[in-house]
Design a protein around this nucleic acid. Structure first.
Lengths: 156, 156
DNA sequence: TATTGTTATACTCTATAACTATA
DNA sequence: TATAGTTATAGAGTATAACAATA
C-alpha cells in the first residue's frame, strides 16, 4: 500500500532537495525580474540584501551589518564601496567610536528602495499564484517552525 | 481581531522572504557540514550538484548537463576541468557525434558519491528535526505545488 | 591587547564573445 | 549554416592575512 509522497511522509532528503530546488528557481526569477527593471544601477541579490538591511537598521555599523548578513567584514567593504560609488549609500564616522563607520541610505536611494519594495511585492504575488491564501499561511507556518530562532539574526 | 501570521494568510512578500531566508540558512549548514568531512577533494554546492546530476544521468553530454543545471556551457567546462583533475569525472568522446563529449563518474568517484548521499540524508534529518512526519509531508506538498512543473527540468 | 575597517591577494562561480572541429 | 565545446577575458561575491588607527 504505497501512497503518494505529497500526502505521506517523504524522506527528509527529498524534502530538503525540493526546498533547495524551489528556492533556486525563485531566486533566478527574482534576480531576472530585478535586472529587467532598467534602474540607474545594477541590483543583484547581495546588493539588494545589503541595501534592505541598512534601510531597516539605519544607521548601522559595517561590523554589525556583516553579522546580520552572515558574511565577513571584508566582503562588506567592497559591496559598500560599489554602492557608495553608485550614490546609494553614505559612510559616516561613528561619533561614539572613531574606529567605526556608520552606514546610511542616501536621499536618492530612498525612493528607489520604495520602488523595489513594491516590485518585490508583485514578484512575490506572481511566484505564489499557485497557492491559495490558506496554503500560504500553512507554508509560512511550516517555514517558521523549520527556521526556529535563527530567523532573528539574519536578513534576506 | 488580529491573528498570528502562521495561522492566517500572510503577505506574499513575507512568505517569499522567509523561504529565501530559510534556504540561505540551510545551504550554509549544508556546505559547512560537507566541508567538515575532510574528503580528499573540495565539495562545494555547485560541484556536488554537478556530480549528482552526472550520477543520475550518466553518460550525459556536457551540453545537456548545462541545460539541466541551468547554467551556460562555458561554466560546465571549468567545473568539469576541475573535477576531472580531482579524478572524479571522465570525459569520453560521444560515438554518435564527434563534436560532443560525454561525462561519466570515475570508478573512484562512486563510493565517494554514495558516502555523500548518506551524509545528505543525515544532514537533512537534522535540519528537519523540528517537523513531525506529517508536517514534512505537508511541506513537501506545498513546495511541489509551488514549483509546478519546473521541477522536471532542474536538479539540485 | 583587542577591535574596526582597509589594503593586498586569491579562489569559485558565472557570463559573453570569438574560435575550432564537426554536422 | 548551425552546433558542441574550448580559449580568452571579465566581473561579482566570498575568504584569509597583514596592517593602520583607535579603544
Amino acid at each position: 500500500m504505497t501512497t503518494s509522497p505529497s500526502s505521506n511522509a517523504p524522506q527528509a532528503a527529498e524534502v530538503i532537495q525540493l526546498l533547495l530546488r524551489s528556492t533556486h528557481h525563485i531566486q533566478q526569477q527574482y534576480e531576472a525580474r530585478l535586472s529587467a527593471l532598467s534602474l540607474p544601477f545594477p541590483l543583484s541579490g547581495p546588493r539588494l540584501r545589503l541595501l534592505l538591511a541598512v534601510w531597516k537598521a539605519e544607521p548601522i555599523r559595517m561590523n554589525e551589518l556583516a553579522g546580520k548578513l552572515g558574511v565577513k567584514a571584508r566582503t562588506i567593504t567592497d559591496l559598500v564601496d560599489a554602492l557608495e560609488r553608485d550614490g546609494l549609500l553614505i559612510r559616516v564616522p561613528d561619533p561614539m567610536d572613531r574606529r567605526a563607520t556608520l552606514l546610511r541610505l542616501s536621499a536618492e536611494a530612498v525612493p528607489h528602495i520604495e520602488n523595489v519594495k513594491r516590485i518585490q511585492k508583485d514578484i512575490s504575488e506572481s511566484l505564489l499564484e499557485r497557492l491559495a491564501p490558506e496554503q500560504r499561511g500553512q507554508l509560512f507556518g511550516l517555514l517558521s517552525l523549520l527556521a526556529g530562532d535563527c530567523e532573528v539574526h539574519f536578513v534576506c
